[in-house]
Measured scan of single mutants.
Amino acid sequence: MGSVRTNRYSIVSSEEDGMKLATMAVANGFGNGKSKVHTRQQCRSRFVKKDGHCNVQFINVGEKGQRYLADIFTTCVDIRWRWMLVIFCLAFVLSWLFFGCVFWLIALLHGDLDTDYKDDDDKSKVSKACVSEVNSFTAAFLFSIETQTTIGYGFRCVTDECPIAVFMVVFQSIVGCIIDAFIIGAVMAKMAKPKKRNETLVFSHNAVIAMRDGKLCLMWRVGNLRKSHLVEAHVRAQLLKSRITSEGEYIPLDQIDINVGFDSGIDRIFLVSPITIVHEIDEDSPLYDLSKQDIDNADFEIVVILEGMVEATAMTTQCRSSYLANEILWGHRYEPVLFEEKHYYKVDYSRFHKTYEVPNTPLCSARDLAEKKYILSNANSFCYENEVALTSKEEEEDSENGVPESTSTDSPPGIDLHNQASVPLEPRPLRRESEIGSRR
Rank of each mutant, 00 (worst) to 15 (best):
S3T: 06
N7Q: 09
R8G: 06
S10R: 06
S13P: 04
E16I: 04
D17T: 10
G18L: 03
M19F: 03
M19Q: 12
K20T: 07
A25P: 15
A27P: 12
A27D: 08
A27I: 07
G29A: 13
G29C: 04
K36D: 15
V37S: 13
T39W: 03
R40T: 14
Q41M: 09
Q42P: 12
R46T: 00
V48K: 01
V48S: 02
K50Y: 02
D51F: 03
C54Y: 04
N55M: 07
N55F: 03
V56M: 09
F58L: 13
F58A: 13
I59Q: 15
N60I: 03
G65D: 03
L69S: 12
D71M: 06
D71L: 05
I72F: 11
I72K: 15
I72H: 13
F73R: 15
T74W: 03
C76E: 10
V77Y: 11
R80V: 05
W81R: 05
W83Q: 06
W83E: 03
M84K: 14
I87S: 15
F88N: 07
A91I: 09
V93Y: 02
S95T: 15
W96S: 05
F99L: 01
G100K: 01
C101R: 01
A107G: 07
L109I: 12
L109D: 14
H110T: 01
T115W: 04
T115Q: 09
D116M: 14
K118T: 02
D121L: 15
D121V: 09
S124G: 14
V131Q: 01
S132E: 11
E133N: 13
V134T: 03
V134E: 00
N135T: 11
S136A: 01
S136F: 01
S136C: 06
T138D: 02
F141A: 13
F141M: 10
S144H: 01
I145L: 04
I145S: 03
E146K: 03
T147G: 03
T150A: 07
I151R: 06
G152E: 02
G154Y: 03
F155D: 08
R156C: 04
C157R: 04
V158A: 04
T159K: 01
E161S: 05
P163Y: 06
I164T: 06
A165L: 01
F167N: 02
M168I: 05
I178T: 04
I178Y: 11
A181R: 08
A181W: 15
V187P: 05
M188R: 08
M188W: 03
A189M: 14
K190T: 09
A192V: 14
N198Y: 10
T200H: 14
F203N: 01
S204P: 08
H205A: 10
N206R: 10
A207T: 03
A207W: 00
A210F: 04
R212Q: 14
G214V: 00
L216V: 01
C217R: 08
L218A: 05
W220R: 00
G223F: 07
L225C: 11
V231L: 13
H234V: 09
A237Y: 01
K241M: 04
E247S: 12
Y250N: 15
I251G: 15
I251K: 12
P252Q: 09
Q255R: 08
I256R: 07
D257C: 11
I258K: 01
V260M: 03
V260I: 07
G261C: 13
F262L: 12
D263P: 06
G265F: 09
I266V: 12
R268F: 06
R268E: 13
V272I: 13
S273E: 07
P274L: 03
P274Q: 04
D282H: 06
E283R: 14
D284W: 11
D284L: 12
P286T: 00
Y288R: 03
Q293W: 08
D294K: 03
D296L: 04
A298C: 08
V303Q: 05
V304A: 08
L306R: 01
E307W: 05
M309S: 12
A312R: 12
T313V: 09
A314N: 09
A314R: 10
T317W: 11
C319I: 13
S322G: 04
L324Q: 11
N326Y: 05
W330S: 01
H332L: 01
R333N: 15
R333D: 15
E340I: 06
E341K: 15
K342R: 05
H343A: 08
Y345P: 08
K346H: 12
R351Q: 15
T355C: 08
T355K: 01
Y356T: 15
Y356H: 14
E357V: 08
E357L: 07
E357W: 05
V358C: 08
P362H: 00
L363E: 13
C364K: 02
S365H: 00
R367G: 00
D368A: 07
E371W: 02
K372S: 13
N378G: 12
N380W: 03
F382Y: 05
N386G: 11
T391M: 08
S392W: 03
S392L: 04
V403F: 06
V403R: 13
P404R: 07
P404C: 12
T409L: 06
D410L: 07
S411H: 06
P413T: 13
L417A: 11
A421W: 05
V423Q: 13
P424A: 11
P424S: 14
L425S: 10
E426H: 05
R432H: 12
E433A: 12
E433N: 09
E435T: 06
